[in-house]
Structures are given as structure tokens and as C-alpha cells.
Amino acid sequence: MLLEYFQMIDSIEDLDPDNGKVIAQANVPMDSTVFEGHFPGSPLVPGVLLIETMAQASGFMLLSRLKFDRMPFLANVTSAKLRTFVEPGAILRIEAELEHDGSGFAKTRAQILSDGKKICDSELMFRTMPFPNDALKGHMLDRFNQISQSSTE
């Protein structure tokens, strides 16, 4: 994870776009400028970044399902529960599953586990839209290839 750059996913462990499922991994760094403020003397991953992590895992699954023809943008977060603190050095397993593939939108359910214990879970709604430009599409493809290869190295 590079928290400052919103790079939340380190590797994709299992991906089944046809059935709308993904399992990813994220390794919380020991040091980050985020921890200087959240919180001084007691570093914790902000809950909003855990939601972002679930959204990114869902997003890569949707991108793959949509064959990188469209970009999923997070639009709605419901029933989010942040159950446990996440500290530096934690290894996170992110699981996301497609709940519904609508016309121009998609809904997923996602959760994060660490040491087999559920950290958080949420339902996430995305608008799926054409990429605003080729640069973003290229970046997303590069990032996807990078984290897909990480799991096979």
C-alpha cells in the first residue's frame, strides 16, 4: 500500500470476472505520512482508506469484467462497518463480490480480513462510465497488470 498515492491494492490473488469475484491483498506499510496525523503516537489506517481499499478491489474486478472499456467510479457506500483498528504492518485480505450488474452502474459487497478476522465490510455502488481520457485508461491497465503479476511472482 502507498497510502499517500491511494495505491491500496498490492496484489490480486484470485480474479473471476465472469462470476464477479476477486480476492486481493494489501500490506499496510510500517511508515506513512498519513500516520503522522492519524494519529500522533497511535498510528491507525483511516477508515475511509479501508473503504477505498474495498472500492479498489471491487473496481479492478469490474474493470476486468468490463474489459477496460469503462471505468467504475465509486458513487455510494452503504452499510459500512469498521469493526477493528488496523495498525501499521497488518496484512489485509480483501474480498469483493458482484451483487448486481446494472445498466451504467454496478453494486458489490466487499470485506477486509486480517489474520482471518473481519476488519470491515460494506456495500458499494459504482457508476460505470467511459474513461474520461486515454491517460487514465492506460494508467489503470498498467496498475492492473502490475498487481496481477505480483501474485504470480
Partner: peptide, 18 residues
């Protein structure tokens, strides 16, 4: 979008919003 989702689920369809 929430309404479309609920309609899709209730009727087992995909309304062509796009």
C-alpha cells in the same frame, strides 16, 4: 441508481438506463 437497482432486483431485469 438505488431505485434502478431495487427495480432490477425485484423484477429480475436490467432496465436500460444507459
Amino acid at each position: 441508481l438505488d431505485i434502478a437497482f431495487a427495480i432490477d432486483k425485484q423484477f429480475g431485469i436490467k432496465i436500460p438506463l444507459e
